[in-house]
Simulated assay, not measured.
Amino acid sequence: MTGEITTTSLEAEPLSTRYRGLICDLDGVVYRGATAVPGAVETLNRVTADGVPVVFATNNASRAPEDVGDHLRKLGVAPQGWSVVNSSQAAAAHLSEFLGRGTRVCAVGGPGVAQALTEAGLTPVRVADLGEEPVAAVVQGLGTDVTWSELAAVGYLVQGGATWVATNLDLTLPTPYGQAPGNGALVALVQTATSASPHVVGKPRPALFDLARSRLGTGLPHTLVCGDRLDTDIEGANSAGLDSLFVLSGASRLRDLAFAERSARPTYVAADLSGLLAPGSSPRAAVPGHLVELTPGAVAHLADARENGELLRSVVATAWAARDEGRAVCDDAGMWETLERRLGLVTRSRPHS
């Protein structure tokens, strides 16, 4: 990976300054529902003020990019230096490659789905307005008001030969109250009823990353992905050949990171997005002298340990090294929760577990 650079270089500059553009997730990274993740807004404003552009790329297709932008500005994000792309736009771009302008496409999900289809020159049709005229495809994205009737209609259309595109397969969506069902959970209902499989455009597939990079105008070595999901943000970044910063402020927890397979391991780790302003170093480059033993008995000795960021990387590096060597890593949930508390991850990043 391009992020594996020398220790001297890692200690010399903030992580964000090593890249020419950032692709940043939203849910669980910048905000949780209506509430900003602590430190995220201040970090983003500092990064864009330093001349590093940001494209917010989200699998959540329920809202139009303009609405997401309004939400970000209300949270205090500076008005310039960033843009928003979502998986609905990636779905519309995919369909526009082989469907003629004006082709009718059923739009299931929030307003962002229909708007993206319109922008791509296609004609969005809601389930309630289908009538007798056929549609060539159906795009299924997240929407808080999606009904059983709409899910049933997706199944009927797919069984009738319509092309089925899912914006993403995220099973959960982080909210201030905990994890809520994501679009993947709703897609799974249709799959169960039809035995069909959709074409997926959201993370970890490359379409959304490609769309975001086209907005940034950056090459692979100069683009950093920031996200909170190992199976979408990080695995997708790795597949696309991009460096990544994984933050523990959203869906995935420390234990998930420690047990991550190689395909879902990030280049860098941090408690939250403020890690962009710190001299980043990779768990992959951790030296043996910085490792800690991952046993329940060792947790009691962490109170006097070094700076939390270094300790976090040491914990992760230890788990990865042990698993790669075929050694057992403690799977005790209580131990990992205690480690999170010692590192300040529960109180700072996850008020609702």
Results as ranks from 00 to 15, higher is better:
178 G>K: 11
180 A>E: 14
200 V>C: 07
178 G>R: 09
212 A>Q: 00
200 V>D: 07
176 P>D: 08
183 N>M: 12
191 Q>A: 15
177 Y>R: 04
182 G>F: 05
197 S>Q: 14
205 R>F: 04
209 F>Q: 00
204 P>S: 07
202 G>S: 11
189 L>D: 02
186 L>R: 12
177 Y>D: 12
189 L>V: 14
197 S>Y: 09
205 R>T: 07
197 S>R: 12
173 L>A: 04
183 N>H: 01
199 H>I: 09
202 G>P: 05
186 L>A: 13
211 L>R: 03
212 A>R: 00
211 L>I: 11
193 A>N: 11
187 V>F: 12
179 Q>P: 06
179 Q>R: 12
203 K>M: 08
179 Q>I: 08
177 Y>V: 12
174 P>D: 07
189 L>T: 15
193 A>H: 08
181 P>G: 06
197 S>P: 02
196 A>S: 14
176 P>W: 06
211 L>E: 01
206 P>F: 01
211 L>P: 00
191 Q>N: 14
193 A>E: 15
205 R>W: 04
190 V>N: 12
192 T>M: 15
192 T>H: 14
211 L>V: 06
186 L>Y: 13
179 Q>Y: 04
192 T>L: 14
212 A>E: 02
194 T>D: 10
203 K>V: 02
210 D>A: 09
179 Q>W: 08
178 G>V: 09
197 S>H: 12
200 V>Q: 10
195 S>C: 13
171 L>V: 01
198 P>Y: 04
189 L>N: 02
209 F>T: 10
171 L>Y: 03
175 T>L: 06
186 L>H: 07
206 P>H: 03
211 L>Q: 07
209 F>D: 01
173 L>E: 07
210 D>N: 08
192 T>Y: 10
204 P>M: 05
196 A>V: 13
200 V>N: 03
189 L>W: 14
184 G>R: 06
184 G>L: 01
211 L>F: 01
170 D>E: 05
184 G>P: 01
173 L>S: 00
181 P>L: 08
177 Y>G: 00
178 G>T: 08
175 T>V: 11
205 R>G: 03
178 G>I: 09
198 P>R: 05
204 P>C: 05
179 Q>T: 10
208 L>M: 11
211 L>A: 05
197 S>M: 07
198 P>A: 15
190 V>W: 11
194 T>I: 13
207 A>P: 00
192 T>G: 09
173 L>T: 02
196 A>D: 14
197 S>A: 15
189 L>G: 06
177 Y>H: 11
196 A>R: 14
208 L>H: 01
195 S>K: 11
186 L>V: 07
182 G>P: 08
181 P>W: 04
200 V>K: 07
194 T>M: 06
184 G>S: 03
207 A>C: 05
211 L>N: 00
188 A>Y: 11
204 P>L: 02
202 G>C: 09
193 A>D: 08
208 L>Y: 00
205 R>Q: 10
188 A>D: 10
205 R>Y: 03
202 G>R: 06
179 Q>E: 12
201 V>T: 12
197 S>N: 12
208 L>P: 03
190 V>D: 12
199 H>A: 14
200 V>I: 13
